[in-house]
């Protein structure tokens, strides 16, 4: 396998991606990346189509075309959107509550050693008990409905957010705090004007992880105990043995998870663009 040969669709065959090329390298690189992405996905779809035709059982493995068709169906009937909204709404709600609790708590624990030592052990005890393990108990307390998935998602999002906030607050460079103090500002200002902005990049990373964790908890929670939502839809159609719809929803879950991550990354870059990589002083 020639590691350097490049035979993607965007560049002439035999061209090498070496530095002496005169082409506007950046643009053709992006086009080339896209071409490779498409090539892989097309091959994947072809293999899938072949496999499903070979297996011959549409319940076991429907063709990509079936899945695409059911996608359109579901979009038309409004089920796609309604389930999507239900899940996304829960994600937003659980995330906002998790942030409202975890971020202030994280600040308090990051700044106050004693408080940290009192609360952290309990956090570390609860953290390994995944949100999913709470589902039976949660079902008991909350029953099947909207509240259960939201609570489980809250639990899933809470810990990454809390832990990352604590780490971010602790990692704030002492120099900034010292600089502010020698400029004669009070402690409240130091918190507001120095610690919060300095910790923001780390907190946003935590938010991204929390959203991902919440989204994953959503699937499990809805599978087991919800009357609506994407996880519920996957299970519903499985019981009906309507596999193309099952796959359509699974793809949607994956797609949305990916989109959330991208959006949060962009947000991170937009809000904290000033955070240059370390080592550039």
């Amino acid at each position: 396998m020639k590691a350097n040969a490049f035979n993607g669709k965007g560049m002439p065959a035999g061209a090498r991606s070496d530095r002496s090329a005169v082409w506007p390298l950046l643009l053709s690189r992006k086009v080339a990346d896209l071409a490779i992405y498409l090539r892989t996905m097309i091959i994947f779809l072809l293999v899938w189509q072949g496999a499903s035709l070979w297996i011959g059982n549409p319940i076991l493995l429907p063709t990509p075309i079936d899945v695409a068709r059911s996608f359109v169906e579901l979009a038309g009937s409004g089920e796609l959107v309604s389930n999507m909204l239900a899940s996304v709404w829960r994600l937003l709600l659980s995330f906002v509550i998790a942030a409202a609790v975890a971020i202030p708590l994280g600040f308090a624990m990051g700044l106050n050693r004693i408080l940290f030592e009192m609360i952290d052990p309990t956090v570390e005890l609860l953290r390994p008990i995944s949100g999913i393990a709470w589902i039976p108990l949660g079902l008991f307390i909350l029953g099947i409905g909207d509240a259960l998935p939201t609570a489980i998602m809250f639990y899933g999002a809470f810990f990454p957010l809390l832990i990352n906030t604590i780490t971010a607050v602790r990692a704030v460079d002492r120099s900034y705090v010292n600089a502010a103090r020698t400029l004669g500002v009070g402690e409240a200002t130091v918190l507001r004007q120095v610690i919060v902005p300095a910790a923001l990049p780390g907190i946003l990373v935590g938010a991204r992880l929390a959203a991902g964790a919440g989204w994953m908890s959503m699937v499990a929670a809805e599978l087991i105990g919800a009357p609506s939502g994407l996880g519920f839809a996957v299970e519903w159609y499985r019981e009906l043995l309507m596999t193309p719809k099952v796959l359509a929803f699974i793809v949607l879950i994956g797609l949305m998870g990916y989109l959330f991550d991208r959006v949060l990354r962009a947000l991170q870059r937009g809000m904290t663009g000033w955070a240059e990589p370390r080592g550039v002083s």
Partner: peptide, 10 residues
């Protein structure tokens, strides 16, 4: 300060 300690977000 030796490392300037300028607030990077300002």
């Amino acid at each position: 300060f030796q490392d300037y300690a300028l607030f990077p977000w300002k």
